[in-house]
Write a protein that binds this DNA or RNA. Structure first.
Lengths: 194, 194
DNA sequence: CGTGCGATGTATCGTGGCGATACAACGCTC
DNA sequence: GAGCGTTGTATCGCCACGATACATCGCACG
C-alpha cells in the first residue's frame, strides 16, 4: 500500500502500453502527457531506480531493437506483475489525491484505462476543488482591488478568469461523461457523491 | 552583477514598500502576488539569509511595533541601499529572463515601479514566447490526435486553448499600454524591438 | 572518405524548494 | 486559567531540477 508519486504513476501508465527506454520516457512525457511537463534526467533516473527497487518495473538490457553487436548501453524498462497491479490500484483510486493540482492531468491522460464511474468521480472532485479555490481567489481579489495597484489587480483578475475557464471545461467534460454513461449503461448513472 | 532569483526579486519588491517580518512576507506572497504562489518557510528563511549575506536586505531586531518588553523574537527586514540598487537594476531589465514562465508574474506585479517602455518590451517578449509555444503545441496536438485516445487529445486541446487565452490577454494589455503611452508621451511610442 | 554535428542514450552533482515539524509567545474567548 | 488560533522564527530530509559529462550512432556535406 506504499504511496505512488505522480511521476511514478505517469511512468507506470506509459509502460503499460510498451516497454521503453529512459530517454524515450522523458521525450514522450514532454510531448504526450500535456504539453507542459518537462521532466529532467535528474528526476527520471533516480525515479526509475526507485521503481526497480520497489519491484514495479524491470530493466531489460538485452535490447532486441538494434541489429549489430551494439556496444551501446540501452536499458528498456517494462512493467512487472506488481507494477501492473499497482497501476490498477491507482487507476481505481478516485480519492482526493486523484484531483490534486499536480496529479489531475496525469490521471486524466489515463482515463481510457479507467471505468466511467471513476472518471466521473474524479472530474466532480476536481470541479469542487476548483470551486473552493474560486471563492478564495474572489475574496482575495476584492482585497487586492482596494489595497493595490491596477497591475496587481489585473494579475489577480486574470488568474481568477483562468480558474473559471477551468471549471467550465470540467462542466463540459462531466456533461459528456454523464450522457455517455446514460447511453451505455443507465444503471450506473448519477453516482455523484461528495 | 550577481543573478537575482525570482524569490529574491519578489521579496525585494515587497520590501521596497515597507520593512516586513518573514511571517508577513510569506503571508503576502500567498495572497498579493498572484493567488497561486505559496512559498514555504523552508524556502523563505534560507533565502532571507542569503539576501542578508549578499547585503541586499538588513535585519532589524529592535522591533518598534510592540509595546511591552516583548520577549518575542521578531525580525523586520528592510532594503539596504545595495538592495534598492539591485531592485532598480532588475526592474530596468527587460531581457528574456523577464518573461520566463516563472518570472513573468512577479515582474508584472511590479509594473507600477517600471517605466512604460520596459513594460511594453516585457509584454511583447512574453507574447512572442507564447506564440512560439503555440506552434509547438499545435504540432504536438496533431501528432497526439492521430496516435492517442480522445482523453489525451482533449487534454492537449485544452492546454492549447489556455495558451491562446494567455496570448489574447497579453494582446489586450499591450494595446492598453500603447494607447496610454500615446496619450502621455507620443515620442516613446512604438518602441517594439525583439 | 572522414569528419563533424545532431540525435540517442545513461548517469551524477550541487543548489535549493518544499512539506513537515518543532518551539514559543501572544491574544482572545468562555 | 485553560484552551486555541494566530503570529513568529527556525531546521531537517526528500527529491526535482538544471547543468554537465560521457559515449555511440546515423547522416550529410565537402
Amino acid at each position: 500500500m506504499a504511496k505512488t508519486d505522480v511521476l511514478s504513476l505517469a511512468i507506470l501508465g506509459m509502460l503499460a502500453e510498451q516497454p521503453l527506454h529512459g530517454y524515450q520516457i522523458r521525450k514522450r512525457l514532454g510531448t504526450e502527457l500535456g504539453p507542459f511537463r518537462a521532466l529532467s534526467y535528474g528526476s527520471l533516473y533516480p525515479c526509475l531506480k526507485r521503481m526497480v527497487g520497489a519491484g514495479l518495473i524491470a530493466a531489460d538490457e538485452s535490447d532486441a531493437g538494434r541489429v549489430s553487436g551494439s556496444k551501446r548501453s540501452r536499458i528498456a524498462y517494462g512493467l512487472t506483475e506488481d507494477g501492473e497491479r499497482r497501476l490498477a490500484e491507482e487507476l481505481a483510486n478516485s480519492g482526493a489525491s486523484a484531483w490534486d493540482d499536480d496529479t489531475f492531468d496525469v490521471r486524466f491522460s489515463l482515463f481510457t484505462k479507467t471505468d466511467s464511474a471513476t472518471r466521473l468521480r474524479i472530474l466532480e472532485g476536481r470541479r469542487s476543488r476548483l470551486s473552493e479555490r474560486l471563492e478564495e481567489v474572489n475574496e482575495g481579489l476584492a482585497r487586492v482591488r482596494e489595497r493595490h495597484d491596477a497591475y496587481t489587480t489585473e494579475l489577480h483578475r486574470h488568474g481568477l478568469e483562468r480558474v473559471e475557464r477551468e471549471v467550465e471545461w470540467l462542466d463540459k467534460l462531466i456533461e459528456n461523461e454523464r450522457s455517455a454513461t446514460r447511453g451505455d449503461n443507465p444503471s450506473t448513472a448519477s453516482a455523484g457523491n461528495n
